[in-house]
Simulated assay, not measured.
Amino acid sequence: MPAEQIQFRDATLAIEDGVAEFTHQRHEARNPLSLDLREDYADMLDRVERDRGIRALILTGSGGSFCAGGDLRSLRQARENPEAGSPDAIRRRLADGHVWMQRLRNLEIPVIAAVDGAAAGAGFSLALAADFVLASSRAFFCMSFVKVGLVPDLGAAYLLPRVVGLAMAKELALTARRIDAQEAKQLGIVHAVHAPEALAQQARGFARRFLAGPREAMGLSKRLLNQSFESHYAALAELECAAQAVASSVPYHTAAVTAFLDGQPAPYDWEREAAR
């Protein structure tokens, strides 16, 4: 796949060799989740969802920051407008965010957040929506909402307890304390920690390890696991049966079984790709 660069409002999207990289580009303000960046996420997902050649997505920030959370300056300006600052307008604005946030979480390819510097407030929520979080040694995470008298949003109240457990989620939300990359790894938020100068390369290498994998089976597995906490066993079993019927009917499955029976290497082997 030839390299492609797309310029959005507050972000860019680079697509090359099956990997898409979405970068927040307002580094002078620590990449806030502005109204423009929210629209960028929706537009980026339109592009990524329709391209079956994209096999992994990286979310990252520029200038040593992932995302410092909501753009409080623009929010204050919006609220000075009686109509834009009304409770109903705020509710609708947040509801719009959940539309693309759910699309991001259910994207049927691996999503990797490469976090350098701050992942605070809604930036922390974005990281939690990824399947894997790779962090630099100077990264930190902060559920900072209570500091400005707000509640966790952009799915944090749903995602955080599922990652760290209810008691720890309450601690992080009610204290708004910072946790560094190592503590985030111990809590299960972060998959791996890298030196800041190596993070981008490590994230791209990590993403490329998925390229040989079965797209359908990985996407369906994500959907099943995302529904596992709130689905009854019988309902999840029905979804599993349907998903397995689809996965077993695609050419990848036939090729993988044939390779196994012929004593040939598996088309997709995570450890083998890591060794490369």
Rank of each mutant, 00 (worst) to 15 (best):
Q5R: 15
D17C: 04
H27R: 13
E28N: 09
A29E: 08
R30E: 07
R55P: 02
I58D: 03
L59H: 05
G63R: 05
G64M: 08
G69L: 03
G70T: 11
N81I: 07
P82N: 13
A84W: 10
G85F: 02
S86Y: 08
I90D: 12
D96N: 13
W100D: 02
I109P: 00
P110M: 07
V111F: 03
I112Q: 00
A113N: 08
A114M: 08
A114Y: 00
V115K: 02
D116P: 02
A120D: 07
A120E: 12
A130K: 06
A135L: 10
R138D: 15
C142Q: 15
M143V: 14
P152K: 08
Y158C: 05
A167P: 01
A167F: 03
M168N: 08
L174H: 13
A176M: 08
D180L: 07
Q182W: 10
Q186T: 14
Q186G: 12
G188I: 07
V190G: 05
A192Y: 02
A195F: 05
A200F: 06
A212P: 09
A212V: 02
A217P: 02
K222Q: 10
E230R: 01
L236K: 04
A245D: 12
V246E: 12
Y252H: 13
Y252P: 03
Y252I: 02
T258E: 15
D262E: 11
P267G: 06
Y268Q: 14
